[in-house]
């Protein structure tokens, strides 16, 4: 048999993505983020955010989290971004694309963000030993099953997060009602 296939089949786990994929997806995510905060046109920002969200979903796949990646694509890229685009089209006024992009306090904001970045860099530099290579103990094939056990419970017992799951559904109900009532013209 083909030796490449043989070794892949015998390794027991799906081949992990190479550094090439990591750098490509990370680069896409960061470039998308940059485009989000710098474009004058809101629709361009929204498209760049979609690129970022899809790149982050790819990073989740590399981190052996296929279910979170699927949820990210369905909810974030397919739901929230459609909502954003709808609202951009509803409130899009011509004036906004000819105004200044950044507000008057932009040096202060940039300085604060740089301070935050310096904090992050020092945290990573000092604590580099605290973040070892990830343990490959999470098989990808039963990921959905295990998450479902944690969310829904198993064989008569409540799962670890069942209560939080129910509260999340209540939160979504409240959000739906709130959004509908706030945007109605006559209550």
């Amino acid at each position: 048999m083909n030796p490449a296939m043989n070794s892949a089949l015998n390794s027991g786990m799906a081949p992990v993505a190479t550094p090439f994929f990591f750098y490509m997806l990370a680069g896409l995510a960061v470039v998308g983020g940059l485009l989000v905060i710098t474009r004058r046109n809101a629709v361009h920002s929204a498209l760049a955010l979609i690129v970022t969200l899809l790149a982050v979903a790819g990073l989740y796949l590399m981190l052996y989290a296929p279910f979170v990646a699927g949820v990210q694509i369905i909810v974030y890229a397919g739901g929230i971004m459609v909502l954003f685009l709808f609202v951009i089209m509803l409130v899009n006024i011509e004036r906004s694309s000819k105004e200044r992009r950044f507000n008057r306090m932009w040096p202060v904001g940039l300085g604060a963000a740089c301070a935050l970045l310096a904090l992050f860099v020092s945290a990573f530099a000092k604590g580099k030993a605290l973040f070892p290579e990830g343990m490959m103990s999470m098989p990808e094939s039963s990921n959905t099953q295990q998450i479902a056990t944690m969310l829904y419970g198993d064989a008569g017992r409540m799962g670890q997060y069942t209560f939080a799951f129910e509260i999340a559904s209540l939160l979504l109900l409240v959000a739906i009602l709130g959004a509908v009532i706030m945007t109605k013209k006559r209550i």
Binding site: A29, V36, A46, L49, V56, A112
Partner: peptide
């Protein structure tokens, strides 16, 4: 961390409310 800092810059400096909300998503 890079995405976080970009989001913070977006929230603090942009004037368009929709783009501020998108930075929060970042």
């Amino acid at each position: 961390a890079a995405l976080f800092v970009l989001g913070v810059i977006g929230v603090l400096t942009r004037r368009n409310v929709v783009i501020v909300l998108m930075s929060i998503e970042l």
